[in-house]
Amino acid sequence: MNIGIFSGSFNPVHIGHLALANYLCEYEGLDEVWFMVTPHNPLKEEGELMDDKLRLELVQLAIADYPKFRASDFEFHLPRPSYTVHTLDKLKKAYPEHLFHLIVGSDNWLLFSRWYESERILAENPIIVYPRPGYPVNADSLPQHVKLASSPVFEISSTFIRRALSEGKNIRYFLHPAVYARLKR
């Protein structure tokens, strides 16, 4: 199967994440998208993150009714900070029957050369880059195994969600209903 690895903090998961993953399954040839909840992104401050188990629970709540999505705590069991190259290596070893495609936002793609062992990731893995507002990518300049998705651009971020929640805003339509209910508790 063609599995998309959508790795991120999902701090919290929101409808932009879900709509993008849905698009990638339906239009970009992925059989499933695995939401790889990352315990600590080396490019982010750890203090910004909600609890790991809460973020995983929120993803599980958000994807429960769609059979092409899977929540994963795979990186919780790897050394920290987690590096994508190690995750991909371990996934290939654990699930040799699957072809893993790394899903990366255009904002992160522009920083990709800063990723740990980025050249090896490029050489050994197909990558799908999705558009993010303000971070244009020229499809003609992409390396061989990198594809620019034609997905809609979602102008929503977890930072916006956290800020709105802290301000007491009712943002129920930016989140899956089960995620909104859980966060309100």
Rank of each mutant, 00 (worst) to 15 (best):
P12I: 11
M1K: 09
L20D: 01
L30G: 01
L122R: 02
P126S: 10
F69R: 00
A19F: 07
S113N: 14
G47A: 13
S82A: 15
N138F: 03
S113Q: 09
S158G: 15
H77Y: 14
H14S: 04
E117Y: 13
N2D: 13
V59L: 10
N125T: 11
F10Q: 08
K147L: 07
K169V: 10
D107C: 02
Y180K: 00
D51S: 09
M50W: 12
F174E: 09
T84P: 06
S9F: 05
G105Y: 00
E46V: 10
R163V: 13
H98K: 13
L49C: 12
E167P: 10
S151P: 00
L58P: 04
F35K: 03
E45H: 11
N108H: 08
Q144F: 05
L142V: 06
S82F: 01
W115L: 14
P67I: 10
F76P: 00
S106N: 02
Y95D: 03
R182V: 13
S7K: 07
Y66N: 15
K44A: 11
K169P: 00
M50L: 15
Y180R: 02
W115P: 14
P96M: 11
I121V: 14
D73N: 14
V59I: 11
F76I: 10
P67V: 08
Y23G: 07
R162M: 07
N41I: 04
Q144T: 07
L165T: 03
Q144C: 12
A19W: 06
P136R: 02
T87E: 05
P81M: 12
P136Y: 00
K90Q: 15
G168E: 03
R55K: 13
I3D: 02
L91S: 10
G134T: 05
V153M: 12
Y66K: 14
D51T: 10
R70P: 04
H17F: 04
L18N: 06
V33S: 04
R182C: 12
L24F: 03
P12R: 01
L111R: 15
P177W: 06
C25V: 14
V59R: 04
S151Q: 01
N108V: 05
R70H: 13
F112L: 08
V153N: 05
D65V: 04
N125M: 04
E117I: 07
N11H: 07
A178V: 03
L91F: 08
V104M: 06
L43E: 12
W109I: 01
S151A: 14
K184F: 01
V13M: 04
A139S: 12
L54V: 14
Y180D: 07
E97F: 06
N170H: 08
E26G: 03
H17M: 10
E26L: 13
H145N: 10
A21M: 03
H17N: 02
L20R: 01
R163A: 13
V104D: 04
F112M: 05
M36I: 06
W109T: 02
H145S: 13
A164L: 01
K44G: 11
Y27L: 09
F160I: 11
T159P: 01
F69C: 08
A94Y: 07
R114D: 09
P131D: 08
V153W: 01
I63E: 02
E124L: 13
E57P: 04
N2M: 15
P42A: 03
I121E: 05
H101V: 14
H98Y: 14
F69G: 09
A181D: 08
K53L: 13
